[in-house]
Design a protein around this nucleic acid. Structure first.
Lengths: 219, 219
DNA sequence: AAATTTAGTGTATAAAATACACGATTACGA
DNA sequence: TCGTAATCGTGTATTTTATACACTAAATTT
C-alpha cells in the first residue's frame, strides 16, 4: 500500500477542465451565461462555458481564456468555486473540473451576436433549462456562494458599472438574495462602510427626481 | 479558436493529486500533520500527506484514503479547500492538486509508531519546517479558512472528543484564532446557540474543582 | 484550616440590526 | 402654473448582539 513512488501512467490521468458560472444582473434579475453544446456528449443541450486546461497556463488563465473565447470580452471578476471530480460525471471519460464563478456588468458586455461558434444566452437562475453534466449542481453551488459572499465582501460592486446609484446597488443585492431590502437601512449600512465615493453627478434618466451617483472605492 | 471538440491527448493531461492539511489541537496549540518525503522531488523534505487520485474514486475518497494510509485512522472531518494548478508548482511534471483540510481530535488518533512506510509528525502551525512544493502556501490558506469557518459554523467541535468541558472548547477556539477569549462571553455565546447538551457527568481530572461535561448536538 | 487552582456566574455599556413613513425633486400634461 | 405621477432621500425608536469586567464555589494538597 505504499503510495509514494507511484505515478499513474498517462492513460490513467483524468482530463482537467474549467467551467465558469458567469453571473450578471439583468433587469433586476440574476442571470447566468449558458452555451449550447455542439459536440458529444449532450449535443444540443445547454451547459456552462468551459473547456480543457492547457499545459503552461494557470487554472485561472484557462478560465479567463474560455470566457473571453465565448463572450468576446475579457477582464472579468473571477473566483474559484469548487472542484468536481466524481467518476461518471462525464459519461465518456474521466474528467475533473475546476469550477469558477465570474461577475460582470451586462451593460459592459456584448455577447457575440449570432456567432457561428457557439450559441450563448443568458438564463434566469431560477428558470434554467435542462443542463448537461452536473452543471445544474455547479450553478446551485455558485449561487449559494455568491449569496454568502455578498454579505461580507464587496463582490456586489463587480456587477455594476463604474458609476451607479444607491437604488441600482440595492437592486443588485435584492436580485442576488432574492428578497426585498429596506431602503433606509440598506443605505445607512452601505454608506457607513466607507467604500463609496459620492460624485457630483446625478443620473437623470427617468422622468423623475435624479439620483446621486457613487463610485466604488475598493477596500 | 474553436475549443469545442478539442480533447487533449493523454500525454497532455496533468496528473491530479489530493493534498490534505490535517489539523489537530494538541496541548492547546494548533498543529498540522506532515510527512517526510522519501522520493523525488524534494526527498527528505517535509510535505503534506497526499497522493494521486485513482480512476473510479471521488476526490474525497482519495483524500480519505491517503489520510488513512498515512495515519492508520479513518473517519476524519474533511472539507475541500482549494485547487492549485500553477504550472511549475511541481518541478518535474504537470500536477494539479485538490487540497482538503481535515480535523481530528488527536486523542482519537495514534500515528503509526516508527512506521517504515513514512515518517509522520505533528508540527505547530506557527513553527513549520521548510516545506516541499507550494505546501506552505496551502497550509496558510487552510489556516485562514479554518479561522473564518470557526466563527460561523460548528467545525470547532470536530477537534474535540465526544464529551468535553467548556474550558476545553474555549482552548480549541483560542488555539485556532491565536488569541485569548473572555470566558464569560464565550460561555454565554456557546450556550445560547442551543447546540450543546449538558451531561450529568463531570470531568474529575486535575486536583481542582471538576468541570461539567457537554456533548455536541449537531445543527 | 489555610492555600492553591480551576469552575462557574451577571450586569452595565456599546454597537449593530431592525422596523417603519413622509417630504423633496423632477417631468409631464391639463 | 398647478396638479399628478414617480422615484429620491432621510431619522428615530426598539431590539438584538457584542463587549468589558471580578468575584464566589468546589475540589485537592499540605
Amino acid at each position: 500500500m505504499n503510495k509514494e513512488g507511484f505515478v499513474p501512467a498517462v492513460e490513467d490521468r483524468p482530463a482537467v477542465t474549467v467551467d465558469i458560472v458567469l453571473f450578471s444582473v439583468i433587469n433586476d434579475w440574476l442571470n447566468v451565461l449558458l452555451v449550447k453544446r455542439r459536440i458529444p456528449p449532450f449535443v444540443g443541450m445547454w451547459a456552462l462555458p468551459g473547456g480543457f486546461v492547457r499545459r503552461g497556463e494557470t487554472l485561472e488563465e484557462a478560465a479567463l481564456r474560455e470566457l473571453s473565447e465565448e463572450t468576446g470580452v475579457s477582464g472579468f471578476y473571477l473566483e474559484q468555486l469548487y472542484t468536481f471530480g466524481d467518476p461518471g460525471r462525464d459519461p465518456r471519460m474521466w474528467i475533473v473540473t475546476v469550477a469558477y464563478y465570474a461577475l460582470v456588468n451586462s451593460k459592459g458586455i456584448e455577447l457575440r451576436p449570432a456567432t457561428d461558434v457557439v450559441d450563448t444566452a443568458w438564463y434566469l437562475v431560477d428558470n434554467l433549462p435542462e443542463l448537461a453534466f452536473d452543471h445544474a449542481r455547479i450553478i446551485q453551488y455558485a449561487v449559494k456562494r455568491l449569496r454568502s459572499k455578498l454579505e461580507y465582501t464587496t463582490v456586489g460592486f463587480e456587477l455594476l458599472p463604474e458609476k451607479f446609484t444607491l437604488t441600482e446597488l440595492q437592486r443588485v443585492y435584492e436580485a442576488i438574495l432574492g428578497q426585498k431590502i429596506d431602503k433606509r437601512n440598506f443605505r445607512k449600512k452601505m454608506l457607513s462602510r466607507g467604500i463609496l465615493q459620492p460624485l457630483d453627478e446625478t443620473k437623470m434618466e427617468g422622468v423623475h427626481r435624479p439620483a446621486k451617483l457613487y463610485r466604488f472605492l475598493g477596500v
